[in-house]
Design a protein around this nucleic acid. Structure first.
Length: 480
DNA sequence: TTTTGAGTTGTTCGA
DNA sequence: GTCGAACAACTCAAA
């Protein structure tokens, strides 16, 4: 093959199967596979847990490309143009991303390739079921509420593209560069302090792992997803958030695999609940695309006057981050996050409500902590979800929805299994007090070897008073 | 244009 | 212990 090669630029699509951009690149000629760690343009900079996941995902991808993946670090614009020039590249292929900084950068790259080098960039949809510009109300403006967006907008639109097969990718279809690239290790994605040893046992990173996770979920949990997903001790959520974020599996593959399993078990209710969660992911991207300011600005501007605390040095924030609030379900969640890089969905809502309402801290502070510590940290989902729990999102939670961590614990972790997993110092406490150790009589605490304030903290805030404070704060932001 | 029904995930209080 | 109502007012979506 003497023809000029093409570049396939891997981004949030670290897989071979159902990769439309990669398939198109292979059809066009010999492929130079490229990954660029663009820490020049990224806003915000990638979090630590994400960087760790990315390292292993790239390592896995590189192995499935016969170690022919070319790594670069720096300004993607500069690097790509140089690569195209030096290697006589005739086309550049990628799958679209939707973060504002990425869209801006990619548009500029596309224009520069065309204008300066007369090379065409070809972009594809590899990470959403429906493009954000494809779904609109009858008056052609974007939806602001999930249910009509999903039911009327998405489900009545053209069905999602069916997954593409893994392309035939032998060594002959991959083009070797004349100049050498960097190595994966030189990207320095792994942490300097070995905290990642703690996370590693919980995950199987890469395309094969993502598919194993998908099928384990479909086989074991889909049939009781509707109720199972709410109980953090059960591990019945899909835990596909990180694989989807990095594109180790496509939402299309998840969607159609779930439909298939759902049909086989003949259960619409659980299937629909799961599919609507995929719909929520779509909705977050949709909101971000049409409202790029949601990453930093309250969608409902009346919340700009809400008296949230904004100090990132507050001792209460520190206690929340470290899982020392004195409320077991909150602390268990924050420790799960720290130890595994993940937190169960139900518990994310509880800890979010606690920070924003009971502790009256700004959602930015929670968002920033999640951004750094979650392996599935995703700009669209993280922003939209924090705004949702804070009540300032487009699709706002009602003002009175303030989670009570004791009731939530008793309802969704009745046996305290989740608490005992992440707060071993409470493990000998009977179920009756596992969600409210401060109410336990002294002899019960003694026989469980717990001294409150010593082994486990006293509550840092009183529930009833802090709930009322949040309601009052909301009332105070209203127009007179 | 106006009207109407609805809005992911809850808690508390009083009967 | 259980159950239903109340909890602001507003915006959105569609008829």
């Amino acid at each position: 093959m003497s023809q000029a090669p093409v570049i396939f630029w891997f981004r949030q699509d670290l897989r071979l199967a159902d990769n439309p951009g990669l398939c198109a690149a292979i059809d066009a000629g010999q492929v130079i596979p490229v990954y660029i760690l663009d820490d020049v343009n990224s806003k915000p900079a990638m979090g630590s847990a994400s960087r760790w996941w990315l390292h292993h995902s790239l390592s896995s991808l590189n192995a499935s490309l016969s170690n022919k993946l070319n790594f670069y670090k720096g300004d993607a614009h500069h690097i790509l143009l140089k690569l195209v020039q030096q290697n006589n590249v005739k086309g550049v292929y990628w799958n679209r991303c939707y973060e504002p900084w990425r869209m801006q950068r990619d548009t500029q790259i596309k224009e520069a390739l065309k204008k300066e080098l007369s090379v065409e960039a070809h972009s594809f949809n590899g990470s959403l079921l429906w493009e954000p510009w494809q779904i609109a109300k009858k008056d052609e403006t974007p939806y602001k509420v999930f249910t009509p967006y999903y039911r009327k907008g998405c489900l009545n639109a053209v069905p999602p593209r069916e997954p593409l097969a893994k392309p035939p990718l032998d060594e002959a279809s991959l083009h070797c560069l004349l100049s050498s690239s960097e190595t994966l290790n030189s990207l320095a994605l792994e942490p300097k302090i070995k905290w990642d040893d703690m996370l590693a046992p919980h995950w199987e990173i890469g395309e094969a792992g993502a598919n194993n996770r998908l099928h384990a979920f479909l086989n074991q949990s889909l049939q009781h997803y509707k109720s199972g997903r709410d109980q953090p001790a059960l591990l019945d959520t899909s835990r596909l958030s990180a694989p989807l974020h990095f594109g180790e599996v496509s939402p299309n593959t998840v969607w159609y695999s779930a439909l298939q399993t759902g049909a086989a078990i003949g259960d619409e209710k659980n299937l629909d609940t799961f599919l609507s969660e995929i719909g929520w992911r779509e909705f977050s991207y949709y909101l971000l695309y049409h409202n790029p300011e949601i990453t930093w600005k309250n969608l409902q501007s009346k919340f700009d006057a809400f008296p949230w605390k904004k100090e990132s040095t507050s001792p209460e924030l520190k206690a929340w981050q470290q899982g020392r609030t004195g409320y077991p379900i909150v602390d268990a969640g924050m420790r799960e996050l720290w130890q595994t890089g993940y937190m169960h969905n139900r518990v994310r809502m509880i800890v979010g409500s606690f920070l924003v309402k009971n502790l009256l801290h700004h959602w930015h502070l929670g968002e920033a902590w999640f951004w750094d510590t979650l392996v599935d940290a995703d700009l669209a989902s993280n922003s939209a979800s924090w705004q949702w729990i804070a009540g300032c999102g487009a699709d706002a939670a009602p003002y009175f929805r303030i989670f009570n961590p004791v009731l939530q614990g008793e309802k969704f972790d009745a046996q305290g299994e989740y608490i005992r997993t992440y707060i071993p110092e409470l493990s000998a406490l009977p179920n009756k007090y596992i969600h409210k150790p401060w109410e336990a009589p002294v002899d019960v605490l003694n026989s469980a070897n717990i001294e409150l304030g010593q082994h486990y903290p006293e509550p840092i805030v009183e529930l009833k008073a802090s709930r009322q404070r949040a309601l009052d704060a909301l009332a105070s932001t209203k127009e007179p």
